[in-house]
């Protein structure tokens, strides 16, 4: 299997990662090699086998609907890159 540079750029965009233009062929090669490794699975007949999402066969526990959290905005925003008037700032969102 061989990923093209175009595909690498598409994936990087989907994952919102800027990658060095010059490194694109390296990524394409590494990802292709890794997916070659992954291809081994294809040969296995898994028909009728239930996918296993969790190692333990447990079910979701439910939490009582009670407020346990207090306002910690000042603490939380003390580590934020850019805030104003209690809001997190980002470059303009265009709808």
């Amino acid at each position: 299997m061989s990923l093209s540079s175009h595909e690498v750029l598409k994936i990087a965009h989907l994952a919102r990662l800027s990658i060095d233009e010059a490194r694109v062929p390296d990524y394409a090669r590494d990802l292709s090699n890794i997916f070659d490794l992954v291809e081994k699975m294809r040969a296995v007949d898994t028909h009728g086998i239930a996918p296993m999402a969790h190692p333990l066969d447990a079910v979701q526990r439910l939490r009582p609907d009670a407020v346990t959290e207090t306002d910690q905005r000042a603490l939380f925003q003390s580590i934020a890159p850019q805030v104003e008037a209690g809001l997190y700032l980002v470059p303009k969102v265009i709808e």
Partner: peptide, 19 residues
Amino acid sequence: RGEGFGEEVKRRIMIGTYA
């Protein structure tokens, strides 16, 4: 994200995104 993550992390994010 491009600056914050190193090569191996980016590589795995891309593998996972593709998969």
